[in-house]
Design a protein around this nucleic acid. Sequence first.
DNA 1: TCCTTATTGATAATGATTCTCAATAGAGTA
DNA 2: TACTCTATTGAGAATCATTATCAATAAGGA
Lengths: 154, 154
Amino acid sequence: MRSGYGWLHQNFRGGGPPPTLPRRYIINIFTTQRGHLSAEDVFTKVQKLYPRTGFATVYRTLDLLRREGILRRFEFGDGRARYELADQNFHHHHLVCRQCGRIINYSDFTKEEEELFRRIEKALKKKYDFAIDSHQLHFYGLCARCQKSKKEEL
Amino acid sequence: MRSGYGWLHQNFRGGGPPPTLPRRYIINIFTTQRGHLSAEDVFTKVQKLYPRTGFATVYRTLDLLRREGILRRFEFGDGRARYELADQNFHHHHLVCRQCGRIINYSDFTKEEEELFRRIEKALKKKYDFAIDSHQLHFYGLCARCQKSKKEEL
DNA sequence: TCCTTATTGATAATGATTCTCAATAGAGTA
DNA sequence: TACTCTATTGAGAATCATTATCAATAAGGA
Ligand SMILES: [Mn+2]
Ligand SMILES: [Mn+2]
Ligand SMILES: [Zn+2]
Ligand SMILES: [Zn+2]
């Protein structure tokens, strides 16, 4: 019957799935600290707030929140998926350190990027009849610290 | 002593690792057909050419060729890594269908992209002291076929 | 040929993620 | 409140891609 749930957390759309305790805790984790969290990261953090939480619930909730558009999912190449809050006021892309895995958000050139990407999307839609809903741009390299430690090796 | 190997396959740099049979077969697979192959894809194809090949060798070789700069590795979100030939004459990005996993190469706007990305890289290097060596841009959405099958569902 | 080292293939191990299923929680109803 | 019905949960097993182990083999160099 799925009704009467719209009142709870603003991040859940009215009529959607019920905002249960673990779900709210997990949302809180993402809203209170900006990070790129793996399932394990989230599990550890929820445990402290709500120790009975199981790993399966964390995975299920992360996927639920992704489907609801609350979280975005990334694969940066370290073998585990990472999630962050989908904040349309903070559109950004990522710098990924190949050595230590550090991830840096950057939002420079947003204007120009958006301009170019809009045109690309339009052209691709026309050329390939492809309905684009999102994009990801990752730059890979070495962070400042890892460049230093590499020099010291020599 | 690692010498005398430079003569074999042009794709291996002189003095590098020896171009053994399975390695050459795997390179051939990538040079003869342009695709985004998973380890399993490659395994199946090598099997036909050189049936004694083991899975471990495929994984090891894919990683070797990536380190040598011959292959590029991608994660498109379907849970398995995919590889393609690193062809600097065909710089391109990808369209990924969320439904069926189809991957389309596109190389429109290369000029403008490169222009913008060069500036971004420069700025990020300055701002974050980050040594960028590559980037990946993925557009996600629905391919033509999957859009149709979605309409037919209704 | 003999020595030495790199590569290989079979297999076991790992690690992230998903599945299964019985127990529980909670909304709606009388 | 007690009862019914469904969705959610947690524990653990299962899956799947990838890595590690290790003994056997191949190939260069002396
Ligand atoms: Mn981010
Ligand atoms: Mn490609
Ligand atoms: Zn680093
Ligand atoms: Zn498709």
